[in-house]
């Protein structure tokens, strides 16, 4: 479908398929991280915690954490691709110069790369959903929509990561990326309900894109359709759009001198 709608962007996506056909094992390893978190925190610490209240009922802790891990898997899949890999291509490979000498333009380039980084997110999310099903952590058939919902997460983090990467000067700058990502992962209503945070702190946490993504996925997994999911989608879409626009503008500055 995308192939016929935006063939040029899709060809950039295809380039990554070529590259990763030989490196698929690397992609596979990325799947284990959320699994270890589920086993270690969800079941390990969850064994001590037991159940927690969610949406007015007591739910097993592992079932509460799992949707958040699914959402962060999508985030990680997208952001590592759109930062490390794109930085490498911008800085060292001359691939983009070659691509831009064909009918492909910077807009196609950005969309193609984002499609790819999103695919990684969707793959991790889908694989993790299968794990959740196997462990009986899925509370509603709506959970099957989760791999679709993570597309919003993937695009927002992919586009934001892409935009930030266009400003990076060296690998050292990536340490600053982790200064943002680690707290984002730990504090975004991932491991405990957002209500735990006192006062203003809570509203800061609510603004985290991962909190929104987690809320979206968690609502689906518990079959709890609510209007705030529309807020989540709008918020993540806005970040995607702004990130994409900025990335394209910066690509123009960097590559079309």
């Amino acid at each position: 479908m995308i192939a016929s709608l935006a063939p040029r962007a899709f060809s950039v996506f295809e380039r990554n398929v070529f590259v990763y056909r030989r490196q698929w094992l690397i992609i596979v390893t990325g799947f284990f991280e959320p699994l270890f978190f589920l086993l270690g925190i969800g079941y390990g610490v969850g064994g001590v915690i037991g159940t927690i209240p969610y949406g007015g009922v007591e739910v097993p802790y592992a079932a509460f954490v799992a949707p958040a891990l699914l959402a962060s898997a999508a985030m990680n899949g997208a952001i590592f691709d759109s930062t490390f890999n794109i930085f490498y291509k911008l800085k060292y490979g001359k691939v983009y110069d070659a691509i831009l000498s064909t009918p492909v333009g910077v807009g196609d380039l950005a969309v193609g790369e984002l499609l790819w980084s999103n695919l990684r997110g969707v793959i991790y999310a889908t694989a993790f959903l299968v794990v959740m099903l196997a462990f009986g952590l899925v509370q509603s058939p709506l959970a099957l929509l989760a791999p679709l919902a993570v597309v919003f997460i993937g695009f927002s983090f992919g586009a934001a990561g892409f935009a930030i990467t266009t400003h990076m000067r060296s690998w050292k700058d990536f340490d600053f990326l982790f200064i943002v990502l680690t707290p984002l992962f730990l504090f975004s209503a991932t491991f405990y309900p957002v209500e735990i945070y006192p006062g203003a702190l809570r509203w800061i946490v609510e603004l985290s894109p991962l909190t929104r993504g987690t809320h979206l996925v968690r609502s689906l997994c518990f079959g709890d359709l609510n209007l705030f999911m529309l807020v989540d989608i709008a918020y993540l879409s806005a970040i995607s759009f702004i990130g994409y626009r900025h990335a394209v503008r910066r690509l123009g500055v960097l590559l079309l001198k």
């Binding site: 610490v45 927690i52 504090f187």
Partner: peptide, 12 residues
């Protein structure tokens, strides 16, 4: 430590 210790601590 803050993210998992304090937060999970509340739940535990």
């Amino acid at each position: 430590l803050a993210g998992l210790g304090i937060g999970l601590g509340v739940l535990v």
